[in-house]
Simulated scan of single mutants.
Amino acid sequence: MTKNNFIIKNHHKTNYTVIYNKFIQDKNLNLELIGFGIYLLSKPSNWIINPHQIRSDLNIGKDKIARLINTFIDLGYMYRQKKDITFTAKGELKNVYYFCDDKELLNKTTEIFRSDETTFHLPLSEIPPLQIAVTETPTTELPHTENPPYNNTNDTNDNNKKNTLLTSSVSIRTYLKDILDDFTIVNLLSAKPDLTIDEFNRVYNLANLEFKNGRCNNVNACLVKAIKGEWNFLPISISESKEDDKIHRILHSKVIYFQDLFKNSSFSKDEIFSKFLIDSQKYDEKLVAIYYKNLKEKLES
């Protein structure tokens, strides 16, 4: 009698992926997570897990990739190591991600990092003396500077100010922890303990614009100086007028550069794509996606 095989398996000898059955059959994982895990496992072991590249490759949004990664971290299949850095260098990722379909193997492999956490991972109460003291009633009055780096508009609406004012250094750390490194957060709070969300976002956007225009070498350093009143921003009307043309020229030149790099080096396509995205992080995501697609077409043609 002929045996019926309903699952037809092809025993590949090349270009295949080994997956732990316990991972695929984990009832805590839905199909979306399993598919994402298989995608990661299909990559080489030295492939850099770059959320920006994954979003472009899989055509998914920022919130979804964050949710997938955070779920894997919560379930123990992924470990996120936050780099112990003062300021993020150009194109440098703040986090290093490790993924495995075997939780025990992941824990064993990343044990060296888990046993030597940076100050960013410590509970807030254990952060050394650099942290500022928490006051029960923080001041709501903005400090006066002779040459303020930006115009304060919060005082036009006391109710909005009351809603956005962060009542302690703990809450400001909670808001900023996924945006800035710990050292920068401490410097910001030391310079301005009553920093508000609206105030931070406005200055942070201006600092990014200064960086894009080449007026500063580091967004975080510019941000801290601005909060301290030591930085005068270029008027937005002047800086924005040349912004689009400049970014298009830069991204176009990057496509040409990485196309030549692929032809004259031993880097794989995935490595070239990853390098391009890392090198283009500071630019508008929609524009980067257009030139990323252009680069892929050139390398795959």
Rank of each mutant, 00 (worst) to 15 (best):
T119L: 09
I8E: 15
N159L: 13
Q25F: 02
F72I: 02
I238V: 09
I227K: 02
T119F: 06
D284C: 02
E300Q: 14
D284Q: 12
N15A: 11
N294T: 15
T2A: 08
H12Y: 12
T174Q: 14
I8H: 14
Y39L: 07
I49C: 09
K22G: 04
K64V: 05
F211D: 07
L176P: 05
K94G: 08
L106W: 03
V203I: 15
K269V: 10
N46T: 10
T118R: 12
K103D: 00
E126Q: 11
E126R: 08
K9L: 09
L122W: 05
K293Q: 13
D194H: 13
N217D: 12
K177V: 02
T2P: 11
Q131A: 02
N4V: 08
P143C: 02
S169A: 15
K246F: 09
L189A: 07
Q281T: 09
V203W: 05
T2E: 14
H11T: 09
A289H: 14
K90E: 13
E32T: 11
G214D: 10
S125V: 10
S125N: 12
L195A: 05
N50R: 05
I60M: 11
A226N: 06
P44Y: 00
F262G: 01
F233Q: 09
N201Q: 13
T196V: 03
F211L: 14
I24R: 14
I227H: 03
L176F: 06
K161Y: 10
K269R: 05
K82F: 07
K27I: 04
E146K: 10
Y292A: 13
E199F: 03
K162I: 07
L142C: 08
L93K: 09
F267P: 01
Y16K: 05
Y291C: 09
K64T: 07
Y292P: 01
V134L: 11
Y77G: 05
L188H: 03
S115Y: 04
N95F: 12
S274V: 04
L40G: 01
L75V: 02
D102G: 01
D245H: 12
F262E: 06
T196P: 02
N59W: 05
E126I: 03
P44C: 10
S268P: 11
T14R: 08
L195I: 15
L130P: 01
Q25R: 06
R67V: 05
H52L: 09
K22R: 12
N205W: 06
K286Q: 15
L31Q: 14
V255Y: 03
D182S: 08
P143A: 02
I247M: 07
A226L: 10
Y204P: 00
L209T: 11
I19M: 02
E199T: 06
I172Q: 15
N5L: 14
L75G: 00
V224K: 11
C100A: 13
K225Q: 15
I172T: 15
T71R: 13
R55S: 09
C222N: 13
R215E: 13
G76E: 12
A191G: 06
N59E: 15
T119V: 13
I69G: 01
Y79F: 15
Y77R: 00
Y98A: 08
K212I: 07
K82I: 15
S115G: 00
F183W: 05
T118C: 05
I34M: 06
D198H: 07
K269C: 00
L58A: 10
